[in-house]
Design a protein around this nucleic acid. Sequence first.
DNA 1: ATTTCTACTTGCGAATTGCAAGTTGTTATG
DNA 2: CATAACAACTTGCAATTCGCAAGTAGAAAT
Lengths: 136, 136
Amino acid sequence: MKKDSKYQSGCPVAYGLEVFGDRWSLLVIRDMAVKGAKTYGELLDGWEGISTNILAQRLKQLEEAGILVKTQDPDNRRSFLYSLTPKGRDLAPVLAEIALWSAKYNEAGHAMTGFSDKVQMDRERVVSRIRKGELP
Amino acid sequence: MKKDSKYQSGCPVAYGLEVFGDRWSLLVIRDMAVKGAKTYGELLDGWEGISTNILAQRLKQLEEAGILVKTQDPDNRRSFLYSLTPKGRDLAPVLAEIALWSAKYNEAGHAMTGFSDKVQMDRERVVSRIRKGELP
DNA sequence: ATTTCTACTTGCGAATTGCAAGTTGTTATG
DNA sequence: CATAACAACTTGCAATTCGCAAGTAGAAAT
């Protein structure tokens, strides 16, 4: 999708969107930051159903962008562990603000997640926890 | 692009991304919120060069989503004025957090915009101004 | 030894994107 | 007032990207 994209404008918003501004990247980051997903399989079984080829592609891009790192699972040699870097965890405020906005405007209500509630209760705490590598 | 997408998961992050989670929507919103772009032509001449058919499509989607409204220019009958609704302006914190993140991690530096600087100087003020419909 | 698991890769039709050119109605110009 | 220029799109089409399904490779369980 985003190679070394020609969309370079110098705008900070555009820079961010180059890195994670597609339909899936932020959802992968959310699964890791909010749900604590660590393996390929866990990410594949996320709430929205990303397809396997797209997931593989995004993981590679996000790794190249320094958002996450891939390591061998010490307990299972056929498994890898994905984890967010500080750069990736620093996207917590972005996730939080999107959740706050959605909580305000999504009439349908948001089931299956206490994330919105937690952020509404104490945004700083949630952001701080994610930044430290903990679950919200 | 996003019809009534099947990506409904109940997750607030996913809801937000359904509305503005593509390559261009947030850039259009940024052009309006930060640059004060109001007409189709101004949006076309944005920093990144969106193509005309995509712009038309996004404007329609964002209007349907209640992010912006389209009105006749009272001074020029061949021109329309696009403006953000409160729902659209409430995305200011999202733009701000993306800008802060980019300012921290974009080595290339971000020329041609004082938005990052303004947000870094006083995030609350910038968000507040955009929420009121003023330029940051 | 064979099945199962984990993490992918490959193929391919369908949808989306980007570029270029054309259209419609409006205002400015000679 | 005829014509050029403008503003906001629309249309066509090639190329990229996406999503589903199926297949592969190596490790672990049975």
